[in-house]
């Protein structure tokens, strides 16, 4: 197995809760001794309820948060070494939840160029990268538009393009669909899969919509900063009761199959699509 692109050992992040007057009330452990390895080229979904620590975890992958005692390595680089931060951010790009709060440029292509500009990439090379990103994200026609005129899904594609222009090996998407409508959500998830498949970019998708994790290679369910379960989608989706207890849900068809199984119908484990269920019931 090639060296992990993301590797964490006992990653722990604690912060002090304060009351209204600013007096410390207690310590919250957002990430709790998390150890995991993500192989290059994988599509990993990290799911968990709000407050499960998934976003805090994501921020460690981009050296936006740096652990004190435990460690995170991105492509072998230790995020505790400050002089590597730029390299780390070029290796693991990050897309955030609210598209409006991460687009800096007032024209689509100028925004996409922002990362490479900061990296000091020569102008001709920036042009090349921007064009490539526009093409990969199917945004050529929106090149000169103001981001304010785009739909939510398109804005998130601009955000992804902006990260892509930095030529990262890994993209971390931190709840990229939370503010989008179903079309926008589908658009973003499709895009993430395409980049993973065609460009071989490692994708780490953070979400609380289990439906979006159906096509991932591997799902990690976080709760209270710890791994509550992990495995292939089928393995995870088979545990309907546990997921509901973790304030998550399964797609309705999976839930229906689960209900039928519980009533004694002989069905395979963890049905993920309507087609599968119909086929299982008609043969």
């Amino acid at each position: 197995m090639p060296e992990a692109i993301v590797k964490t050992r006992n990653l722990t992040y604690e912060y002090i809760r304060r009351d209204a007057e600013g007096n410390p009330e207690g310590v919250t452990t957002a990430v709790d001794h998390l150890s995991l390895d993500i192989a290059p080229g994988a599509f990993v979904a990290i799911v968990g309820r709000n407050g499960s620590g998934k976003s805090t975890f994501a921020r460690h992958l981009n050296a936006l948060l740096v652990p004190e005692e435990s460690a995170v390595w991105i492509n072998g680089m230790d995020t505790r070494e400050e002089e590597k931060h730029l390299d780390i951010r070029m290796t693991a790009g990050m897309v955030f939840q609210n598209p409006d709060n991460q687009i800096i440029g007032q024209v689509v292509e100028e925004d996409i160029a922002f990362g490479p500009e900061n990296m000091g990439v020569p102008t001709e090379e920036i042009r090349l990268r921007v064009d490539e990103a526009l093409q990969l994200l199917k945004l050529e026609k929106k090149r000169l538009d103001s981001p304010n005129r785009l739909s939510g899904g398109q804005k998130q594609r601009v955000s992804i393009a902006g990260v892509l222009a930095m030529r990262p090996r890994c993209i971390v998407l931190d709840e990229p669909t939370a503010m989008l409508d179903p079309q926008g959500r589908a658009e973003v998830i499709r895009t993430a899969h395409r980049l993973n498949r065609k460009e071989g970019i490692t994708v780490i998708l953070i979400t609380h919509h289990m439906e979006e994790a159906v096509d991932a290679d591997h799902i990690i369910v976080l709760d209270k900063g710890k791994i509550a379960m992990q495995g292939s989608p089928r393995e995870v989706f088979a545990r309907v009761e546990e997921l509901r207890a973790l304030r998550l849900s399964v797609p309705q068809v999976t839930y229906l199959a689960y209900l039928l199984r519980r009533k004694g119908l002989a069905l395979p484990d963890a049905i993920l699509t309507v087609e599968e269920l119909v086929e299982a019931l008609t043969v």
Partner: peptide, 8 residues
């Protein structure tokens, strides 16, 4: 945060 993440 987003600007920092993009190497600003």
């Amino acid at each position: 945060l987003a600007m920092e993440a993009r190497c600003y």
